[in-house]
C-alpha cells in the first residue's frame, strides 16, 4: 500500500465549502496553511503546547497541529480569518485586542483570538480567572498576558451588552 496515497476530504472552512486531496500524515494546521493558504493559523510548536494553531472545529476548540487533516473530513471549521463578519466587521475580541494592545508580534494572536472568541461566545460572563484558565494553553512570549486578559474582559462586556 502506498503510504502517501491521498484521500479526498470535504469540509467547510469559514463558510466556504472545500474539497481537497490530502496525504494521511498532513496535520490540519499544515493543510490550512499550505493547501488552503489560510496562513493566519500559526504553528509555534507542533507538539500541542503553544496553542498558536488553535482553530474552532464543529464549535469546539482544537489544536490543529494535533489533528490530521483527514480527520477534518465533514467538519465545519472557523479560523482566525473567519472571525470577522463577511462584511469585514471585526469580532468584538478582535476589536478589543486592537484597543487594549492585546498583541505585540502577533504570532500567538490567532490562537488567542480563536480561543477567546469561542470561550466568550459560550460564556460572556466569564471572569478574569476563567479567562486566564482558558488561555493557559496558549503561550505568548511578548505581552505578559495582562493586556490579553483585559481585551478578553472588554470583549466579554461588549458581547454581554450585544446579547
Amino acid at each position: 500500500m502506498d503510504v502517501e496515497e491521498k484521500r479526498r476530504i470535504s469540509l467547510v472552512v469559514n463558510g466556504r465549502k472545500i474539497e481537497r486531496e490530502v496525504s494521511p500524515r498532513k496535520h490540519l494546521g499544515d493543510f490550512l496553511r499550505e493547501d488552503l493558504r489560510l496562513t493566519g493559523t500559526h504553528l509555534g510548536c507542533e507538539h500541542g503546547v503553544c496553542g498558536s494553531c488553535t482553530v474552532i472545529a464543529d464549535g469546539v476548540l482544537v489544536r490543529s497541529c494535533l489533528m490530521l487533516a483527514i480527520q477534518a473530513d465533514g467538519m465545519v471549521l472557523r479560523t482566525v480569518e473567519g472571525l470577522a463578519e463577511p462584511d469585514g466587521t471585526l469580532h468584538p475580541i478582535q476589536e478589543a485586542f486592537h484597543e487594549k494592545h492585546g498583541l505585540q508580534c502577533g504570532f500567538c494572536t490567532p490562537g488567542m483570538l480563536t480561543t477567546l472568541a469561542a470561550v466568550i461566545e459560550e460564556n460572556p460572563s466569564i471572569d478574569e480567572a476563567g479567562i486566564r484558565e482558558a488561555i493557559s494553553g496558549n503561550i505568548c512570549r511578548c505581552t505578559g498576558y495582562e493586556t490579553i486578559v483585559d481585551a478578553a474582559l472588554s470583549a466579554a462586556a461588549t458581547m454581554r451588552q450585544g446579547a
Binding site: T39, H98, G106
Partner: peptide, 14 residues
C-alpha cells in the same frame, strides 16, 4: 494591528 488580528500578517513561513 489590523492585519495581524485578522490573520493577514506575512511571516516568513507565509
Amino acid at each position: 494591528d489590523p492585519k495581524l488580528i485578522t490573520g493577514r500578517g506575512t511571516y516568513v513561513d507565509d
